[in-house]
Design a protein around this nucleic acid. Structure first.
Length: 490
RNA sequence: GCUCCGUUGGUGUAGUCCGGCCAAUCAUUUCGGCCUUUCGAGCCGAUGACCUGGGUUCAAAUCCCAGACGGAGCACCA
């Protein structure tokens, strides 16, 4: 029995065990987004994996907004809240939320300690000049400054006495380290542009990510860092600071980039922002946008995204995420609960003859007859999808209504029993009455599709999910009596 | 140019540290069959992979060397 349970547990865990997990009393992680825009689908990997580990190890994770660049990657004030909402949508809640731009005094204090330890120096070289020296493995003259001078100049930086580009604080690493990426990197620089957050608008001396993040990870007792390969060298840079302070660096995992199929639009915050600003996308939740807001509007359950992300694992190579894996996970979650309805795209009208039943009553859900049936009056004519129109003198089964022969431009009711379908010669199709129906626009990744839904859809409200039979799942989005639905997936 | 990292079917992943039980796991996709008054689901089945070349070994997806290909860093971005 115990063996069986152990096996079940192993099956659940598609993620590998965290390195050295046993060595820590509590697993502590951080999700450190830059709030410079709403999240795209790729961002979901961070909370999905970190949150899943948190739950698995009964650990802790925080969201820490690393918003220390007021200019180039300027924070978007709406993004802080939007990101927390996205997190909730994905099925997680942070144990704590921090904002780096609230913590500048802490970073300054650690910088001073680093200066005291001889681990940092103020430098007024231009970026190009320093780069040249660095590539040659040569120190710049500022490296030898007395500690007192460094303190004075750093205080002046904090006071805002320099303009952007005039002075930086560098960490003293190893100026001829064989990896040029690690040589005396910048810890603080001057930024003229005020931070968009009012609480932080007066600061001009801002830490770089490697410094800020390194200090915070220690102060928050982070045991495991999980982040992208673009930050592969960060750990190596930050270790120099950790060594000065005699701290122990956390375990660190890196993963590669995620690419999506099915989208024409590049998955990048800045690209999306530009497309939204130019009006090429109808906002961040446009069905064509690879954003979480878009998937949410399409009625896709956040847990399905989380599941697909967790299945990607944590390998350092780049991965292609197939949207079909998100869709498959979502179907698992919603199929049993979702009502079936008819929706005809680009319908053609065809008359009915031969006295068919006046009303069709297909079930709301084929596996749950107890949920009841729909009422679809047939009337004198129906709409069919052009592709479903049968050939001349061919039979077709209108689902819930019966068998018809297509002859002289009219569908003649034949009264055949269901066996004609079972024998395989007659296709079953969906339809809507030409008279009593609900015009509805289906918004898809490939554009809007106009059509008609069966009358019963008036009973739904926005956010309800239905399955349009033979079309796919959709989320209703009704505004001012205008019926719109967002297509989810097949 | 310098420095890191990676490469298992269409896609993702397990196995690689500690070579044999791996003619390679699981999921998804695709294609068949059963069932079904849709699609999906379910059940059954099929197709499909260890980057290349050397070496070590009785034995290599796994260790070693070389190469190819891919990615990342060398920002006063995150």
């Amino acid at each position: 029995m115990a063996d069986i349970e152990a096996e079940d547990e192993a099956d659940d865990q598609s993620l590998p065990a965290l390195p050295n997990a046993d060595a820590y009393e509590e697993i502590r992680m951080r999700c450190a987004p830059n709030p410079n825009g709403p999240w795209h689908i790729g961002h979901a990997r961070m909370p999905a994996v970190i949150g899943t580990y948190r739950d698995r190890y009964d650990g802790w994770f925080c969201v820490r907004f690393d918003d220390t660049d007021p200019e180039t990657k300027r924070p978007d004030l709406d993004a802080y809240g939007a990101i927390l909402e996205d997190l909730e949508y994905l099925g997680f809640e942070a144990d704590e939320v921090y904002t780096a731009s609230d913590r500048l005094e802490t970073y300054y204090e650690h910088a001073r300690r680093l200066i005291d330890a001889g681990g940092a120096y103020t430098c007024s070289c231009s970026g190009e000049d320093f780069s040249e020296l660095k590539n040659a493995g040569e120190a710049c003259p500022h490296r030898q400054k007395p500690v007192e001078t460094v303190h004075e100049e750093f205080d002046d930086m904090i006071a805002g006495d320099y303009d952007s580009g005039e002075m930086v604080l560098r960490v003293k690493t190893d100026i001829d380290h064989k990896n040029p990426a690690l040589r005396d990197w910048v810890a603080f620089r001057m930024v003229d542009t005020p931070h968009p957050r009012e609480q932080a608008a007066d600061y001009r001396c801002w830490p770089m990510l490697d410094f800020q993040s390194g200090i915070d990870d220690q102060l928050l007792d982070v045991t495991h860092i999980i982040r992208g390969i673009d930050l592969q060298d960060s750990a190596k840079r930050q270790r120099f600071v950790y060594d000065y302070f005699d701290w122990e660096y956390p375990e660190v995992l890196h993963w590669g980039h995620v690419q999506l199929d099915e989208y024409d639009v590049k998955m990048s915050t800045s690209t999306l922002k530009a497309l939204v600003d130019d009006g090429e996308l109808d906002g961040w939740d446009d069905p064509r946008a690879p954003t979480l807001e878009s998937l949410r509007r399409r009625g896709i359950n956040g847990e399905a995204i989380t599941k697909a992300m967790v299945e990607l694992g944590t390998s350092t190579s780049d991965v292609d995420l197939a949207m079909s894996s998100i869709y498959a996970a979502n179907r698992d979650l919603i199929d049993e609960e979702t009502d079936r309805r008819f929706f005809v795209r680009d319908g053609v009208e065809v008359g009915l003859g031969g006295s068919p039943p006046a009303e069709a009553n297909p079930p709301l859900h084929p596996n749950h007859v107890d949920r009841g049936v729909r009422k679809i009056p047939a009337g004198d004519a129906v709409f069919l999808e052009p592709e479903d129109l049968p050939g001349r003198e061919e039979k077709i089964w209108l689902k819930g209504l019966g068998c018809f022969l297509y002859t002289r431009d009219v569908l003649q009711y034949t009264g055949d029993p269901i066996d004609v379908v079972r024998d395989g010669d007659v296709d079953v199709i969906h339809w809507v009455p030409a008279e009593e129906n609900v015009p509805l626009t289906l918004r898809t990744m490939d554009g809007d599709v106009a059509g008609w839904a069966e009358p019963g859809v008036v009973a739904y409200e926005s956010d309800d999910i239905v399955q349009f039979e033979r079309v796919g799942f959709a989320r209703l989005d009704i505004v001012d009596d205008e019926a719109v639905a967002y297509y989810s997936h097949p």
